[in-house]
């Protein structure tokens, strides 16, 4: 075959391919549009309506917004969400970094420990919440069984304690995941940095603060983004563990949306909360991107 015909076939294939490519993206686009994009627009539209799940959807303008914005439950839910975000981030980050560094070692016993340690990653929030509910039961749980008074408190019945339990259980579930991220991050730090520091006589603590931490910068940003955006929508765990209680001590935004919508049948008001969730999530993602200097998702994927 001559060079000319070869070139002609190739350009023909290219133009044909150019026409085909957009079609390949169509199934994903349609699926995403129908069940993510339309609902995203829908949540905004429905926030201007009233709907009790049985009757007709009625356009009521800003009624639902007024109702939610004047309800003292909203600042409370925002505050609870913010506290959960902040406290669980503040506790999980240092713990995950330390454990990640520890598990990055290639010693046999550490690898064995890691196998067991990552098990919580596999469990559903429902399973974890149910386990801790049983474990912390003041009458039949661990405290009663061991006869230790400290553990026999009414963990889920007292607002402050219940809040602490939520933070603890969230950490229990997610620290392994973030340790896994940090383990990967630490293993990517070039050994030569440590060897040079060793020659300069730096101790282990010094090396941790001057090499390990700065080198983990992008892992910290990714992990923090996932933690903060994730804690915005914590639902399963709190729903099964406390149902927002006692009272409304652990009623975070996502739970507030569910309760307004599916228990109080105020779908319009629930959609207002949904819009707020979307906005806060977007603002958070933009803020973290600015702090990090680049897209946290893209950052980890460079050179993949």
């Amino acid at each position: 075959m001559s060079a000319i015909t070869a070139r002609r076939t190739s350009s023909a294939a290219a133009s044909r391919g150019g026409g085909v490519l957009p079609w390949l993206a169509l199934p994903a686009l349609v699926a995403f549009a129908v069940f993510a994009l339309i609902p995203l627009i829908g949540v905004l539209l429905l926030s201007f309506t009233s709907w009790d799940t049985l009757g007709e959807i009625q356009l009521t303008g800003l009624e639902s917004w007024r109702q939610v914005l004047t309800d003292p439950g909203l600042p409370h839910a925002l505050w609870v969400t913010f506290l959960i975000m902040l406290l669980s981030w503040g506790f999980q980050t240092p713990a995950s970094i330390l454990i990640g560094v520890f598990l990055a070692g290639h010693q046999r016993y550490r690898e064995l420990l890691a196998v067991l340690y990552f098990i919580p990653l596999l469990l559903s929030s429902a399973a974890i919440a149910i386990t801790f509910k049983a474990l912390l039961d003041p009458n039949f749980g661990l405290g009663a069984g061991l006869g230790i008074d400290f553990l026999t408190q009414d963990w889920l019945g007292e607002p402050g304690l219940a809040f602490g339990v939520v933070i603890f259980v969230v950490s229990w579930q997610f620290i392994p995941f973030h340790s896994l991220l940090y383990q990967g991050g630490v293993r990517q730090i070039p050994r030569s940095l440590y060897e040079a520091a060793e020659l300069d006589g730096a101790g282990r603590v010094r090396m941790f603060f001057s090499i390990t931490l700065p080198q983990l910068k992008y892992t910290i940003i990714t992990s923090s983004t996932l933690m903060l955006v994730g804690s915005l929508t914590f639902f399963d765990l709190i729903f099964v563990l406390t149902e927002g209680g006692p009272g409304d001590a652990t009623r975070a935004l996502a739970l507030d949306m569910y309760k307004r919508g599916f228990q109080a049948n105020l779908m319009g008001a629930a959609c207002v909360i949904g819009v707020i969730l979307v906005l806060v999530g977007l603002a958070l993602a933009l803020l973290l991107r600015r702090i990090g200097g680049r897209d946290p998702y893209a950052s980890q994927l460079e050179g993949v």
Partner: peptide, 11 residues
């Protein structure tokens, strides 16, 4: 970047 769980009511 968007928490899609927030759209469960329209879903």
């Amino acid at each position: 970047a968007i928490p899609l769980q927030a759209t469960v009511i329209p879903v």
